[in-house]
């Protein structure tokens, strides 16, 4: 038993606070937009130059000039703004974005993140990921706990880094972990997940807060 992708996204959505400006990565993080808690307002940034990202367009709303960072056609909400790439990354690098939620291939116990390159395989580039992880106020990783049975939460990343010491919290299908000076600390277990299961599927050592049973 563990969280589904939507349950993971819903748990990540509980990290959102009223008034936050948030950047969501591709994959599971995009699901977070469907789980915003009632009563709070969050504005989504798309790093290609849009603040106030809306839902996908209806067929008759499709506009080639309006896309998200994944190059998908989108819409914008009332109060949205568009801007240049330099302004967009001023928001990101200048610490104006409250939270980035993104996927990862590996996270180390010091908060190192690898999510852009596998040596020897096709290299596509880092896009805006390096800017995001080094610039926004808080970086939350949302990912499966393991990949094809292989551990992703490691003592040291083996893949080239996207950023060093940048991740503050990780939400997986098994648990929620914080990156602390003494390594990964599990603060919450997914429904049905156990301490033993988390320990078995994590290469790095993990500790558990007392409230986690």
């Amino acid at each position: 038993m563990a969280w589904t992708r939507h349950q993971m996204a819903a748990r990540a959505a509980r990290e959102l606070q009223d008034g936050f400006y948030v950047n969501l990565g591709i994959g599971i993080p995009t699901l977070v937009a469907s789980h915003i808690p009632r009563g709070i307002t969050v504005t989504f940034q798309s790093e290609n130059g849009l603040l106030g990202l809306g839902p996908f367009p209806r067929e008759d709303e499709v506009d080639a000039d309006l896309i998200n960072a994944g190059k998908e056609t989108v819409t914008f909400i009332a109060g949205a703004s568009t801007f240049s790439s330099a302004d967009s990354f001023a928001m990101i690098r200048g610490g104006h974005i409250d939270l980035a939620i993104l996927g990862a291939m590996q996270v180390s116990e010091r908060g190192d993140l690898a999510n852009w390159m596998i040596p020897g395989k096709r290299v596509k580039g880092m896009g805006g990921a390096m800017d995001l992880v080094s610039g926004v106020q808080r970086v939350l990783v949302l990912m499966e706990h393991t990949a094809q049975g292989g551990a992703k939460l490691l003592r040291n990343c083996t893949l080239p880094l996207t950023g060093a010491g940048v991740v503050k919290r990780v939400i997986t299908d098994l648990c929620v972990l914080d990156v602390t000076p003494s390594g990964f600390e599990v603060i919450e277990l997914a429904t049905g997940a156990t301490r033993a299961q988390v320990q078995q599927q994590t290469e790095a050592s993990v500790s558990f807060t007392d409230s986690v049973t």
């Binding site: 967009s88 990354f89 690098r93 805006g128 800017d131």
Partner: peptide, 13 residues
């Protein structure tokens, strides 16, 4: 030359 997106924009700016 892979260049982070924000770095590329700022290099042009």
């Amino acid at each position: 030359e892979f260049c982070p997106q924000g770095t590329l924009a700022e290099r042009m700016r």
